[in-house]
Design a protein around this nucleic acid. Structure first.
Lengths: 195, 195
DNA sequence: ATATAAACGCAACTGGAGTTGTCTTTGGAG
DNA sequence: CTCCAAAGACAACTCCAGTTGCGTTTATAT
């Protein structure tokens, strides 16, 4: 007999409540202020239960990231690689700028810096995002806008990296112009066959 | 009378001991494992003293960053902007790869994500580094290798950003080829007048 | 409908980070 | 040399994140 668990009852409700509470706490206090105890209280689930199922703060983060991974990501299709790339980088910028989703996204990045588990989760999450975004580059190659051998993932990386750098490393403000410039730089390099 | 404090005595020794201990702890346990208590014990300074002078872990980080800021940074001068840029990006990569200095540097980045104080310190630190690195670009302009209106700081940023992105956001391995490619992409964009 | 094992709730406990009041040391001015 | 204010050492305390043992609920298989 296959002891397949089908979580449709109490466990599922607990899981959802904790996930929601984690996201809410993350939005309010950021990663540094995330506590198992606070998540437990907010979710209405007893803290020992949270400790047993999620272990610690890192577990909560990893689980929340898995949830976020399933949300669809609007890939732009403006007709030109120039517009598509620009929109992707803008989307990254505004995503972190958003007063609601921004802190949560930033918390994920912060968490990944201190927890190998969270780092793996974020890596997987971004790999999925990159794979979707890379499609934009492949379309451009098909249209003849970019040379054949271009590394789609690398183009995306080079385009968005300066935005992340300003946000999380140098801690400078990021304008839309900054985002557009980064997209343009990546595009130029891609066209020249450097990427 | 100018009540100028000249810290050449006990206070200075305490300060140095704490700074050293902070760096050592950071190297061993990273930012997440940094504790005022551990720093106090390792330095031989009583923990109440550390708490009163540095306040908390963030204060220790900010102070250590100020110390690191004074260390000189070897600006390459290969004769061409291509070589200079490449060496700068390689230097960033190897800096975080170094088993001794790497964890400390990574800890600074992690700390800046959770503490506005540390963020300011890191911002200042990197601003100084960037200003030095930008010289390489200005030399290139003087030699006619790059167009006049190029934004020196932006060239540096675009060049090193992909390395930081891989290290601290997507958590992918970073090869020397990756570093060289990022430098080449930034250079191409700069030559084309995009940066 | 009922049995049962997993999941959850609960209260009490543990340990360590951070705080406070007070005493002691020390560097430097006169 | 003497004095004294600033800085440090010390011990005792508080508080909260995380743990443990055990009783209770509940989803699911039969």
């Amino acid at each position: 007999m296959e002891t397949v668990k089908r979580p449709g009852g109490r466990s599922a409700r607990v899981r959802d409540a904790v996930r929601q509470a984690t996201l809410a706490e993350l939005a309010e206090r950021g990663f540094g202020g995330l506590t198992v105890e606070n998540v437990a209280e907010r979710s209405g689930v007893h803290k020992t239960t949270v400790y047993r199922r999620w272990g610690n703060v890192e577990g909560l983060i990893a689980d929340a990231l898995e949830l976020a991974r399933e949300e669809p990501w609007p890939i732009p299709d403006t007709g030109s690689i120039e517009g598509d790339l620009r929109d992707i980088v803008r989307l990254v910028r505004t995503g972190f700028d958003d007063p609601e989703a921004g802190p949560v996204a930033a918390a994920f990045v912060a968490a990944a810096m201190q927890s190998p588990d969270a780092a793996r989760s974020l890596h997987g999450f971004l790999a999925a995002r990159h794979e979707q975004s890379a499609q934009v580059v492949r379309r451009a190659v098909a249209r003849g806008e970019l040379p054949e051998g271009v590394d789609a993932h690398e183009v995306i990386r080079v385009a968005i990296a300066p935005v992340y750098y300003r946000l999380f490393v140098s801690h400078e403000p990021v304008t839309q112009d900054d985002a557009d410039r980064a997209a343009a730089a990546a595009l130029t390099a891609a066209r020249a066959g450097v990427l």
